[in-house]
């Protein structure tokens, strides 16, 4: 496994333009004098975070603190307004399980297609397909279209694919709360195994128990900045105390 800095987030800012006009249309583009009601929303305010290889970092913070935006920026879904994000290694983003599934294709076809979206080659996906199917426990349904799956089955398949891309860095956004108890246990087992092998994890959670269970460092985000960064108990205690004060 790799050593050194896995994620280097330097002075990252992200500003969104808020539109109150609703749907996008040519009309709104042409009515230039109405652009005055466009607001800017600063979600991240010069964030600097360094994560070493092998660390497991939990992000906590209130809604709107910028946690999900940060994960999206690391996953290259957004471009930062300013600043730089340097990633060393392959990322597996688990922002929403099964987001890329096509309902009319079978589970097997979706594995191929989703695995390739996550950066595997066709050959690699085909080699791993049996393991993915076994992990998702979908042997009997794998040849039926995904639209016939329950949401739990879709989430299982989504997690199984992401678990098999051989990522160096796992980006998780509160997705472990899906599936039944035994599958949840399987996910945690996978994460433990991933950590044991020296993988890096960055995850968002509102559940203090899962933070304690997995993380070895907690970063508290508030108003787009790092409010506190340190060991699990210190930061979590401060964060929970701040939550009760309100």
């Amino acid at each position: 496994m790799k050593t050194g800095i896995a994620l280097d987030i330097r002075e990252v800012r992200k500003t969104f333009i808020l539109s109150h006009s609703g749907a996008a249309s040519l009309k709104t583009a042409l009515l230039w004098w109405k652009k005055a009601n466009r607001e800017k929303l600063e979600v991240l305010n010069g964030l600097t975070i360094r994560v070493k290889h092998g660390e497991c970092v939990a992000l906590v913070g209130r809604n709107g603190a910028g946690k999900s935006t940060l994960l999206s920026l690391i996953s290259k879904i957004y471009k930062p307004t300013s600043g730089e994000i340097v990633v060393d290694g392959r990322i597996a983003p688990l922002l929403e399980l099964g987001a890329g599934f096509h309902p009319d294709l079978t589970g097997l076809e979706n594995i191929l297609y989703n695995g390739m979206i996550l950066g595997l080659s066709r050959k690699e996906v085909l080699e791993r397909t049996p393991q993915i199917v076994a992990f998702a426990e979908l042997e009997t349904h794998i040849d039926t279209p995904v639209r016939t799956y329950s949401s739990g089955m879709q989430a299982r398949l989504g997690f199984a694919i992401a678990a098999h891309v051989d990522a160096d860095i796992l980006i998780v956004d509160e997705v472990l709360a899906v599936g039944d108890y035994s599958f949840e246990k399987k996910c945690y087992d996978y994460i433990d195994e991933f950590r044991r092998k020296g993988g890096t994890i960055l995850f968002v959670s509102h559940n203090p128990d899962s933070v304690r269970r997995v993380a070895d460092r907690v970063i508290w985000l508030a108003k787009g900045q790092v409010k506190m960064d340190g060991s699990v108990e210190t930061v979590l205690e401060a964060y929970l105390a701040a939550g009760e004060e309100r």
Binding site: S75, K76, I77, P93, E96, A99, G100, I117, L118
Partner: peptide, 9 residues
Amino acid sequence: LNVVKKVYF
């Protein structure tokens, strides 16, 4: 767009 919002390619 739902895929584009969740995965990079």
